[in-house]
Design a protein around this nucleic acid. Sequence first.
DNA 1: CCTATATTTCGTCATATGGCGAACTATAGG
DNA 2: CCTATAGTTCGCCATATGACGAAATATAGG
Lengths: 127, 127
Amino acid sequence: MALDEVVALAKALSDENRIRILASLRNGERCVCQVIELLALAPSTTSKHLAILKQAGLVQSRKEGRWMHYRLTTSSGTSPAEEAIRWVIANLENDPRIVADDRQLDSILSVERAELCCRQREGRRCC
Amino acid sequence: MALDEVVALAKALSDENRIRILASLRNGERCVCQVIELLALAPSTTSKHLAILKQAGLVQSRKEGRWMHYRLTTSSGTSPAEEAIRWVIANLENDPRIVADDRQLDSILSVERAELCCRQREGRRCC
DNA sequence: CCTATATTTCGTCATATGGCGAACTATAGG
DNA sequence: CCTATAGTTCGCCATATGACGAAATATAGG
């Protein structure tokens, strides 16, 4: 039912950290450990946010060994979820926090994934 | 800031009753008493929902004596709120609850506003 | 197979949200 | 002005949400 879908999508979008996740995925898929690093949240919390976005149909996931990658949903191009993603991204341009996230994401992506996870284990923030 | 605005709009849209309110306004402004009747919620609850929608910029209000009218926001036509309204309405087409609401709203609009408020005072649902 | 480890699930806590009724506010009309 | 009344605000309660750490799961690699 469309009413339920609209509400479910809006609920998924009604959290700042989840919006930041969507923004971080707009230029390509990211590994969970990279999202954890960007948000500086506990792995369990980050995983829950990703699960909520996936449940709402806003992101899709791909498993690669021990690593899990998430990306923005692409399907027909005209689904409610995809329209919502476009609305979100379009309204985020030039937001200072998103710009800062973009910069930090560059740093995160410049680190080897294994090295990033290693640093996270040892409780050090890498960037 | 755009991030805050996106989250605020999504929060305002993340409740079924508030979506039903937006749908009920899509063909013109409505009086609070008419919205109360449609949702079958307490006046205080309905008023709070309308205040949340107004705070988010999704609806505007107009006072006419003791009566207050709400309508969907119209401004530039390309504001985040207006884009959100279009997204919501477009995805609600043919939803059975919205169709039922539309029918009930016809009934409500066929009753004199004073008569509607009178019935509400006496605790009777009119439709 | 055994160990290490990336991610998820579970349990718990603090806070946010949505509901109501009672009290308050503002305005129409006697 | 006094009363009635449409709507809002306030105080309260039950439930939902987001945070964390601990425990569980799944997989790579010795």
